[in-house]
Simulated scan of single mutants.
Amino acid sequence: MSKYPVSPQEVDISAVRAQGAGGQNVNKVSSAIHLRFVIRDSTLPEHIKERLLALQDQRLSKDGVLIIKAQQYRTQEQNRQDALQRLQQLVDSVSHEQKARRASKPSYGARQRRMDSKSLRGKVKSLRGPVRD
């Protein structure tokens, strides 16, 4: 269950014709779905809205409208579910709080192992030179 569920009333869903191969069915049936989600008008918390608007995503317009096109499935209902699920996954991805990184230092043993491996590597390379008598 999502922490911030998107209400179906907040999205504008329209059926369009799908692209690509599919023959006669693609030419006459509108099974693809265009989902439009206006981020600023949604009931999501402000910090989630800000993160969504800050995304560098080609599906996000300059007006703050997220447009998702779903045309993977043959039926309109499956494409509608797919589009809603992809929108929810996007909201869930920005709602996850990143932990602040704490700077740390390598331990004494780790520094010793690093220096030992470097000196060993230097010895191997010194043996590659020309042979001296």
Rank of each mutant, 00 (worst) to 15 (best):
M1E: 12
S2R: 01
S2F: 00
S2Q: 01
P5F: 00
P8F: 06
P8G: 03
P8Q: 01
Q9K: 13
Q9L: 10
V11P: 09
D12R: 11
S14H: 05
A18N: 08
Q19K: 15
Q19F: 10
G20M: 08
A21H: 08
G22I: 06
G22P: 04
G23I: 04
G23F: 01
V26A: 09
N27S: 03
N27H: 07
V29Q: 10
V29W: 05
V29I: 12
S30M: 12
S31Q: 06
A32M: 02
I33N: 06
I33H: 10
H34A: 11
F37C: 00
R40N: 15
D41V: 05
S42L: 09
T43A: 14
L44V: 08
L44H: 05
L44W: 02
P45Y: 02
H47C: 03
H47G: 00
K49T: 00
E50S: 15
E50R: 15
R51P: 03
L53R: 02
A54R: 11
A54V: 12
L55Y: 01
Q56N: 15
D57I: 08
D57N: 13
D57L: 09
Q58R: 12
R59W: 01
R59L: 05
L60Y: 09
D63E: 15
D63K: 11
G64V: 03
G64P: 13
G64C: 05
L66S: 03
L66N: 00
I67D: 14
I67R: 15
I68Q: 07
I68F: 03
K69L: 12
K69M: 11
Q72R: 14
T75D: 01
T75E: 06
Q78E: 13
N79D: 07
N79L: 05
D82V: 04
D82M: 03
D82G: 07
A83Y: 07
Q85T: 15
Q85M: 10
R86T: 04
Q89C: 04
L90V: 02
V91D: 00
D92I: 01
D92G: 05
S93E: 09
V94Q: 01
S95E: 07
S95W: 00
Q98C: 07
Q98Y: 05
K99T: 11
K99L: 08
A100V: 12
A100I: 11
R101V: 12
R102H: 12
S104D: 11
K105L: 09
K105F: 06
K105R: 11
P106W: 01
P106E: 00
S107N: 01
Y108K: 15
Y108G: 09
Y108S: 07
A110V: 04
R111K: 15
Q112R: 14
Q112Y: 10
R113D: 10
R114C: 05
S117C: 08
S117R: 13
G122R: 14
V124P: 03
S126G: 12
S126K: 11
L127R: 12
R128W: 09
R128E: 14
R128T: 14
G129H: 03
P130T: 07
P130L: 11
V131C: 06
V131I: 15
V131Q: 14
R132K: 14
